[in-house]
Simulated scan of single mutants.
Amino acid sequence: MSLDSNKGLRQYVLTRWNSTYLMLESAIHYKRAFAYLEMIDKNYMFCPNALEWENVNDISSFLGCFYCAICAFSGTKYPTANVYFPVVALIYLNLKQDLVNEDGYKRLMTSQMISKFEKYWSEFSLVLAIVVVLDPRYNLDLVKYYYTKIYRAESQEYENVTKTLTKLFMEYSAPTTSSSTIVQSQEDSDWEM
């Protein structure tokens, strides 16, 4: 049996949430080694069966999007708001897809998570969407892509983003009194004294 033994098995660390994901990923890597150990060692009695390995794969893929999000947010010393929208939208999309999961436990866990997630999403998705549109690397198409996936077709939420962007543009493109004009007129009045 040829396995990359440099990877090593990870242990669960109570104070680090990502240790569960890392532990499951390393266990999946060594799945064949566990099966081999079960065949050669009569004292080894805790080898996961096929259903348990399926559950390990499901939970690992479920936790994977959260792990990637944390890596994206903490991978830089100064994460900016434009980084958040694509990652958070992907998490929301994954949660919505897992709501229809056949596994009752996973569906229950997802429904509890999504109710908390939607509270924050409803408050901040507009701001995050506008920030990502203002980033030169992205544009409104990215917002439309995720909103179409999350809400299906044309949504009120997407229309709200476009209306807010239009109002923002109109506000900044409207002629305003220049601050230099105000300063100049104030200086002129000082000279008249």
Rank of each mutant, 00 (worst) to 15 (best):
E159V: 09
R32D: 13
M39K: 15
K163Q: 12
A35D: 13
S60M: 08
P48T: 03
F85C: 02
N101E: 10
A35T: 13
S178V: 06
W121H: 01
I70P: 03
M1P: 12
A153N: 12
L9I: 09
R16V: 07
Q11F: 12
T110G: 00
T177H: 14
T164D: 03
F46R: 15
Y147G: 01
E25A: 12
Y30P: 07
S122F: 05
N6W: 11
L99E: 04
V83S: 07
N55C: 09
P48C: 02
V83D: 02
P175N: 10
Y138W: 06
I59N: 11
C65T: 04
Y145N: 08
T20I: 07
A69R: 03
V132W: 00
Y12T: 03
S173F: 10
T76D: 05
L24I: 05
V131A: 13
V83W: 04
Y151K: 05
T15L: 04
N160E: 15
N82H: 15
S155Q: 02
A50E: 14
V131G: 09
Y84N: 02
S189M: 14
R32S: 12
T76K: 10
T110K: 01
R107W: 05
A33G: 14
I182M: 10
F46K: 15
S60I: 03
I182G: 08
K7D: 06
D135S: 10
N101P: 06
E52T: 13
I150L: 01
C68R: 12
R32Q: 13
L168V: 04
Y138V: 00
Y12F: 13
Y145L: 04
F34T: 06
T76E: 06
S185V: 04
T162I: 09
Y84M: 09
N139W: 02
Y36V: 03
E192N: 10
A35M: 15
L63P: 01
I114D: 01
F34P: 04
E171Y: 11
N57T: 11
V183T: 13
C47T: 13
T162S: 10
D141N: 12
T148G: 14
N139Y: 04
Q11H: 14
A50M: 10
D98V: 05
K119E: 08
M193K: 14
